[in-house]
């Protein structure tokens, strides 16, 4: 049962592996260039485990000590995880021992894989969720450490590989729409985010976009629910 779940989790996380190897190794290398050794890289990627925050906090770690700012930065950049938590509330219900780890590891990539695809009837879901989370965690921490050990393991020729994660999210969104047919929610999410990105700019759009999405979904609750019943 466990082996089947592991196999399924491995095949759904292959693109994450490629994306993380590139991003994580770049991160480890960058941390080195700021004077942080492999121990620090291991500590931060194993405890924080949030790529975009880790990159955003690079400057923070070499400037003056300001824990309050660090906390606010973490909350703002990662506020999107609230969405993932609410999305997974029901899926993760009833899972016992491993639930804290599933919650700790609910990153963009893990959420998108779990939310978009049903692993199939013959696969034990809690174990599948566990292995997807664990593999993504290992890929990330491992890649960060590799990057800091080897320095830049590649040059400019691999520039652009990070698109693998964008492509993954697009494909998973399409799979999710084919499976669940909730076009109106996806459209709401898309339009609200584009509007807020245009209005507030890339540094400020996250929270307004999240608020606009939730309020639009609530505002259009009736028509959206009517559509599902059809």
């Amino acid at each position: 049962m466990k082996r089947k779940a592991l196999k399924a989790a491995f095949s759904s996380t292959i693109p994450v592996f490629a994306g993380f190897l590139f991003l994580g190794a770049s991160y480890g290398f960058l941390m080195n260039s700021k004077g942080f050794g492999t121990g620090w890289v291991l500590l931060i990627s194993a405890t924080v485990f949030a790529g975009s925050l880790q990159f955003a906090a690079l400057e923070l770690l070499v400037s003056t000590f300001n824990p309050l700012y660090a906390l606010v930065l973490a909350l703002i950049i990662n506020a999107r995880h609230l969405f993932y938590g609410f999305s997974m509330l029901k899926e993760y219900r009833g899972i016992k021992k491993i639930k804290p780890f599933l919650i700790f590891g609910l990153v963009d990539e893990t959420f998108s894989i779990i939310a978009s695809k049903d692993p199939g009837e013959e696969i034990d879901k809690p174990w599948y969720y566990f292995f997807v989370t664990l593999l993504n965690y290992i890929y990330w921490v491992g890649s960060c450490v590799i990057g800091s050990l080897l320095g830049s393991i590649w040059g400019a020729e691999l520039e652009g590989v990070e698109f693998v994660l964008t492509a993954l999210f697009i494909v998973l969104l399409l799979n999710q729409l084919t499976e669940q047919k909730k076009y109106s929610s996806a459209l709401t999410g898309f339009i609200c985010t584009v509007i807020c990105l245009g209005l507030f700019g890339r540094d400020m759009f996250l929270l307004p976009a999240m608020l606009l999405i939730v309020s639009s979904l609530l505002l259009f609750k009736r028509p959206i629910e009517r559509k599902w019943q059809q």
């Binding site: 999305s87 978009s116 998973l172 969104l173 669940q180 996806a186 985010t193 890339r202 976009a209 979904l217």
Partner: peptide, 22 residues
């Protein structure tokens, strides 16, 4: 909240795709 838990996954995925283009 149950309603949001049902609608958010697709909305959040679309959000995430736009996020990649920030």
């Amino acid at each position: 909240i149950e309603y949001l838990a049902n609608t958010l996954p697709c909305a959040a995925m679309a959000f995430l795709v736009v996020y990649c283009f920030k």
